[in-house]
């Protein structure tokens, strides 16, 4: 595989193939660009905006922006980090997130990002929305309180599982995840082994009865910050 496009991220030369996104090329080169709605194997969504970088000074979502020769990308700078921190804080106050008794704690990408960015408490006021929990399914819990509207489940169910169990309804602050049924998740053809269940970055879609199979303290982000695996990989290796 010969790299034909070169550009820089925070001054570092990044080799890339044409057609790659900035996020993919960065990841390949061992540069972590924080992200939430992006998920390997799914069509990029460009909705959470956490992966926003400055491309020649212009803000662009790294997960949807294709590489271009010679562009200067700012990723881990004070300015970009401050903007990303604000976005992460917005996601915390928008929903009802209670890490201390969420079984996803330690495996949650939102929580892990907050730790990586050093967020102890958001500066924005909590919005305390009224949201529904759907516990009807025998093996899967849907808790909209913890949903960040990243659309991973929508894309995974539609494009990988071939089912379209989930979609968004409403708009603006009224936007929420709906299921393909008259009322409840139990009426859909969702199975616990579906990709849609696996990809939720937060505690909105949970497998029942396995929440504490791995004890708190031994979970994915308990040991090292999110993104460390990408940064530890040798440049060019995957």
């Amino acid at each position: 595989m010969s790299a034909t496009v070169e550009f820089t991220i925070d001054g570092k030369e990044i080799p890339a193939q044409p057609g790659q996104t900035i996020l993919e090329a960065a990841q390949q080169a061992g540069v972590y660009i924080p992200r939430l709605c992006w998920c390997k194997g799914l069509v990029p969504h460009g909705s959470c905006r956490v992966c926003t970088v400055l491309v020649n000074g212009r803000p662009q979502a790294a997960c949807t922006q294709p590489v271009a020769p010679g562009v200067v990308v700012e990723n881990n700078t004070e300015k970009v980090t401050a903007l990303r921190r604000n976005i992460i804080e917005m996601l915390f106050v928008e929903g009802n997130h209670f890490c201390m008794f969420c079984e996803k704690s330690g495996n949650c990408e939102l929580q892990a990002l907050a730790y990586r960015f050093g967020i102890t408490a958001p500066k924005y006021p909590y919005l305390f929305p009224q949201r529904d929990v759907d516990a009807s399914h025998p093996d899967v819990l849907l808790d909209r309180n913890r949903c960040i509207l990243c659309g991973r489940c929508v894309r995974a169910s539609r494009d990988v599982d071939g089912k379209h169990v989930f979609d968004f309804v409403g708009r603006g602050p009224h936007k929420r995840i709906a299921v393909n049924a008259a009322a409840r998740l139990a009426e859909t053809d969702l199975k616990v082994a579906d990709k849609a269940v696996e990809v939720c970055p937060v505690g909105a879609i949970l497998k029942k009865r396995v929440g504490y199979a791995v004890p708190v303290g031994q979970r994915q982000y308990d040991q090292q910050p999110i993104g460390s695996d990408i940064e530890a990989a040798p440049a060019g290796g995957r």
């Binding site: 917005m90 919005l127 509207l149 603006g172 936007k175």
Partner: peptide, 15 residues
């Protein structure tokens, strides 16, 4: 009138 697709517009305007 926000479509609610992206975080800053969906949440930021409310804040």
């Amino acid at each position: 009138e926000s479509c609610g697709y992206c975080t800053p517009c969906r949440v930021g305007n409310v804040l």
